[in-house]
Design a protein around this nucleic acid. Structure first.
Lengths: 341, 341
DNA sequence: CAGGCCTACTGAACCGTTACGGTTCCTGCA
DNA sequence: TGCAGGAACCGTAACGGTTCAGTAGGCCTG
């Protein structure tokens, strides 16, 4: 029966025609993809898990770039891309359990996310991107420590010693405000943890005590969050000369808010970002560019590549690039800052 | 067996525990989603078909907005969103046949697309968005004619009579250049056809002969296309005082190219777009805003709403809004244009 | 002419789950 | 003690396609 559809060489043309004709006459809608999937154990789709509302994937430019790359890889392999609804509020893992996919790409979820646990229970290949650092799984990412160290050294060369940090959420529970050193060290988002640790390391080398460095955390990843976090930071510690943000979105928000408050950037205050999104380029933000599209594509390739025979988990580490824009400059002395040059 | 997983109320807690324990011991990975789909006749996912490379969905801001809205609706219903790879070059319909979904959303495909035909053969509900106008199917869109007529009347009031048009692809075959009236009338992209027809109607009312109006078509929907199309247009007919683009992307490209050529907008030339994307706002483009996110959400709702009992195909028409930016002004006389004011 | 082989086609088992009906067993009431 | 009724549990039949073994018939060869 289904031979007529899929294996034209296995039967004579006239029988095939007869079968197809009667099938049409009977209103047969063609082979059922689900039944085929069950039998062949192939779904022809890749599942994407990310720990935000689904629509977030389309709001964050970095995520959009990643998705574009992933879509590219899927397309090459003729696979579909299934966006899995994983609301971070509800711990409803059903969507992961009911996703008919040949593998998962996990993007930017905390290492204690129940959805991630559910994915790992599924007997399909999985590629982790950026966020959780799980040793047994294939992984695509950047060297966060090295990347942000380059940025930090740049600021140190410019003369900055009084710095502050604005970072993205560190754990699944909301904490909009200062993040204690413990919270930093125990962060469930590996990327944020690595960046903070690297900053701590580099600045310690030049005598900056990390406990004294204000780190403001924001749960929501929006420009508004960046703005309010920067405001909170400057209120807590007005002597800060440089605000390091762990994402461009936050940095752009901080930039706008600081300028709104009448501070000149970079004369009065240095602001830096991370990611290298298009809007950052437009704003001439000093930042670290990471190849988001390539990241997505690499993740897809890793997942769909059949030559995964090696039992060893594979790892792809992509290069980053320091972008010196116009939002970082030398700090002015305190007198200058208060009384003008 | 699977009762233990899905129907805890049907059996006693200790049996459930025993079953689950032995299941784990035997390495049972949990109920198979594909088999469940087959049995329950539900896939828990919505398929999205669009006639571009998959990654295009993430490059065009209007498409991204649409996707965000669609994702929102899917999320509410706990459904996944499956992006179906439908390469417009290959007529490979297999991806449509093998998509395990409960329904399709078709976005912006030509009405003679083989993938669309394949979707219609599948016995699942389908919602059309914007592009193909198929009478039997549910549909979400805007009133393209009315929307662009408002824009056209605005230009007419400003005094424009010598206009040119830059439009997106009109059919599946590539034609980068002038589009003949026949090609316009036979366009397989309903939206483009409707807009051109509406423009023709309105300008005819004020004595403009449509055959004389240059319409430049571009296959690729990029800013580069918009720029080169505008250049070609002005070369063909230097007396044109207003370039109407059928998308913001094209308009932004035209704007950049015309300014690069030294023309002042709007003093020397008026340029308008369509869609109302963020970049257009930033560029103060005169355009028509359409609610792309709402469109996606409406499509999702329509598809997932069980109350589709009425045999009648449903239709949602969303409102649009004329945005008067700073890229449209009164035309200068020919003398002024050549010799300065 | 008989035996063997190849082609065209048919039938049945299996993929893993859910739905449903049937059986057992226990409790409560007369 | 007998019986009704319900809760708990179990067995089995689909769901629809793929695959593979098996069969019939035709053709070639010794």
């Amino acid at each position: 029966m289904s031979n007529a559809y899929n294996r034209p060489d296995q039967l004579s043309p006239e029988l095939r025609k007869r079968v197809l004709d009667t099938a049409r006459r009977l209103g047969y809608p063609g082979p059922d993809p689900v039944a085929r999937s069950l039998r062949t154990r192939k779904a022809g789709a890749v599942g994407l898990l990310l720990t935000e509302n689904l629509s977030y994937a389309f709001r964050d430019p970095a995520a959009v770039g990643f998705l574009e790359g992933l879509a590219l890889a899927c397309e090459d392999a003729g696979h579909g891309l299934l966006l899995i609804p994983a609301n971070p509020e509800h711990e409803d893992v059903a969507a992961v359990h009911s996703a008919g996919v040949d593998g998962f790409v996990v993007y930017s979820v905390p290492d204690d996310d129940p959805h991630l646990a559910a994915v790992m229970e599924r007997p399909v290949p999985t590629v982790i991107c950026d966020q959780p650092s799980i040793s047994e799984l294939d992984r695509v990412g950047i060297d966060d420590a090295t990347a942000i160290k380059g940025l930090a050294r740049h600021l140190i060369e410019l003369g900055h010693r009084k710095i502050g940090v604005v970072c993205m959420r560190l754990a699944r529970n909301r904490n909009d405000g200062p993040a204690s050193p413990e919270r930093q060290a125990n962060a469930h988002f590996h990327v944020q943890r690595a960046r903070l640790a690297a900053l701590s390391e580099v600045f310690s080398e030049v005598g900056v005590e990390w406990d004294q460095v204000p780190v403001i955390e924001r749960f929501d990843h929006t420009q508004e969050s960046g703005g309010s976090a920067a405001a909170q930071l400057m209120e807590m510690d007005p002597e800060v000369t440089a605000v390091i943000c762990t994402s461009d979105i936050l940095a752009l928000g901080a930039l706008a808010e600081m300028r709104r408050q009448g501070r000149r950037v970079p004369q009065d205050l240095t602001i830096t970002g991370f990611d290298g999104i298009v809007d950052a380029e437009r704003a001439e933000l000093t930042t670290v560019r990471q190849p988001v599209l390539e990241k997505g594509r690499a993740a897809g390739r890793l997942l769909l590549d059949a030559s995964e025979s090696t039992g060893q988990p594979r790892e792809v580490v992509l290069d980053t690039q320091l972008i010196t824009g116009s939002t970082a400059g030398s700090p002015r002395s305190v007198e200058e800052r208060w009384f003008g040059p």
